[in-house]
C-alpha cells in the first residue's frame, strides 16, 4: 500500500482518508480486523501518534470500532459504508464536472460524452 501525503493539509486527515479508501475498496471488509497503529505507522513512515489520531477520527465517525481485546475492527454497518461510498462518489463527480466546465463543456455535453465513452468501452470488452 502506497501512502500519498501532500504538503498542504494535516497528515492525520490524509491518513484517515486513505484508510477509508481502503475500507471502501474492500481491502478491509466490514467487520474485519485492522492492523495495529504501530504496524500501519511503520508502513506509512509516519509517527505512531499521528496514525493514532487518524484512527481516533475514524472512531469518532463510527466507521471504525475499537475493541478492547482484539484491536480495531471495521464497522459491520454496511449501510454506513455505502453512504460514505456515495458521498465520495459525489465529490469525485463534482471535481470532474468542474474540470470539464473549465474545458468549456456544458453538463449535457459531458453526459453525452460519458455515454459515448461507456459504449466504446462496452464494445472493447466484447
Amino acid at each position: 500500500m502506497d501512502w500519498q501525503l501532500s504538503n498542504d493539509r494535516p497528515i492525520y486527515l490524509q491518513l484517515a482518508e486513505q484508510i477509508v479508501q481502503q475500507i471502501l475498496g474492500g481491502r478491509y471488509p466490514p467487520a474485519s480486523r485492522l492492523p495495529s497503529v504501530r504496524e500501519l505507522a511503520a508502513q506509512a513512515g509516519v509517527n505512531p501518534n499521528t496514525m493514532q489520531r487518524a484512527f481516533a477520527e475514524l472512531e469518532r465517525e463510527g466507521l471504525v470500532l475499537s475493541n478492547r481485546t482484539a484491536g480495531r475492527i471495521v464497522t459491520e454497518d454496511i449501510e454506513m459504508i455505502e453512504q460514505i461510498r456515495t458521498q465520495m462518489a459525489i465529490k469525485q463527480i463534482e471535481a470532474f464536472l468542474s474540470n470539464m466546465r473549465q474545458l468549456g463543456f456544458t453538463d449535457t455535453q459531458v453526459t453525452q460524452l460519458l455515454e459515448q465513452y461507456a459504449k466504446k468501452e462496452e464494445n472493447k470488452d466484447v
Binding site: 504538503n7 498542504d8 493539509r9 494535516p10 497528515i11 492525520y12 486527515l13 499521528t50 489520531r53
Partner: peptide, 15 residues
Amino acid sequence: TVDNIREREGKSVDQ
C-alpha cells in the same frame, strides 16, 4: 504540533 501547523497555515512545516 506538525498537524496544528498544517491545519492553521495550510502548508507544510518545511514551507
